[in-house]
Design a protein around this nucleic acid. Structure first.
Lengths: 234, 234
DNA sequence: CTCGTTCAAATAATGTATGATCCGACCGTT
DNA sequence: AACGGTCGGATCATACATTATTTGAACGAG
């Protein structure tokens, strides 16, 4: 997704000394510092993030495009609730798109691609979840090897946008042991199916992978909620 | 799609004495007045549309979110080429999403829904393409009856966004007689399958409907291009 | 003389500041 | 309940400051 018109890459997220207003607001929405349905007043946000109103307005437009904020004309913006339904909605769409992208990848894959996939997977296994954020990056890169080649830029961008959202959300929760194991297994299985030129099989694995990841996130969200929602005011 | 966070409804498009900057820029991109890859300079646009730079900036952010413009940091925006590939990309995604939405609709449909669909279809047939823009509205409403009920708001919004884009693009081209006939036939067929609780059948009809509509648009774009691309500078 | 490098002016994006205007929510009166 | 006034806040208009990129001319090495 190199470069144009897309959300900053993962690496920048943490390194950037000063993140953009956009990133900060998004982070605050995902982390819950800005609560569900909370009104987002331009002036307040500008003050809070120490900028002028202009960058705030633009950030809100962007966030609206990505589904993080809802806007009504002349009435301003509010935080879209990041709840289980939100994740489920995205996952359902991904369960349609990712298998389709994967299918196509199988039809054009070459040896170098397989090598790259295996290298990425090896790196993931070597890390073995020692650093969750880093794992997120590697995992994203793994799938990116598959999707970024697709001729349908729109679909690839859509995947990327959804991926960013899901990665940001799951960052808040721990990964269960069983899920960790499943992820590695499914990745290996996926590589196998791709190598074997089994488009249907690969698509099925991906569908399962996406669904499993979504289900896991949703479950973790439920756990966190039952353990007491600790929204602190911004 | 009632209200929040969405592009203005079709009706407003034509009625609004003065459309927003966002709408005007979008219109100029779709209609080709702003050519592919043309640079979009904030100051120029502000002057051209007789507004200040502020609304222009926001409009560009919005358009970026919808895929009409591409932006690079510190280098500004340019027009995303609205070509056959662009339409094809969107259509491919819709061919995944719309059947899925339709399938779910079949499982929850009631008598009132059928009646509403038939009424909408009757209106379309009564109009019989006499007014293309009006037809576009009615056709959109027909499908909206099916998709707007879905619990997956994200998917429904995505459909709506794509729908708006496609409708805007096809407004530039005439509809062939055969396509007109096919649309009416497919709509009737779709209602039948839904009434018969045939989810697979309905999904198949929709897939065909979307593909046919996309193919037709792409063909018309090709024709228009061969007849000489008449891009006039803004 | 040609090519690549360096640097400075021009260009334009991005951020700040401030005031005007308009819309919608709220509130009290009739 | 209907009306009108008040107020918060979004939206728009300007003007200006800052920062990044591009361009092209001057310059030096080969």
């Amino acid at each position: 997704m190199s470069g144009i018109s897309v959300t900053p890459t993962p690496a920048e997220d943490s390194l950037d000394q000063q993140a953009s207003v956009y990133e900060m607001i998004r982070e605050d929405i995902i982390s819950g510092r800005l609560g569900p349905n909370e009104r987002l007043k331009i002036a307040d946000l500008a003050e809070h993030y120490r900028t002028s109103t202009n960058p705030v307005r633009e950030a809100l437009q962007q966030l609206r495009g990505e589904g993080f904020v809802l806007m009504e004309p002349n009435r301003g913006a509010r935080v879209r609730p990041i709840d289980e339904a939100f994740v489920r909605d995205i996952i359902e769409i991904e369960m349609l798109i990712e298998p389709a992208l994967t299918r196509w990848f199988v039809s054009i894959v070459n040896d170098a691609d397989i090598v790259a996939l295996e290298a990425a997977q090896a790196e993931i296994e070597a890390l073995n979840y020692a650093d969750p954020a880093r794992h997120g990056e590697l995992d994203t890169r793994f799938h990116q090897l598959i999707y970024d080649r697709h001729y349908n830029r729109h679909a690839a961008e859509l995947w990327w946008k959804h991926r960013e959202i899901l990665r940001a959300i799951s960052r808040r929760f721990p990964t269960s042991l069983s899920r960790k194991v499943a992820v590695l297994r499914e990745h290996r299985e996926l590589i196998e199916r791709i190598r074997a030129q089994d488009a249907d099989g690969a698509a099925a694995v991906v569908a399962r992978h996406v669904e499993g990841s979504g289900r896991h996130t949703i479950e973790q969200m439920g756990v966190a909620k039952r353990n007491g929602p600790q929204k602190r005011p911004v």
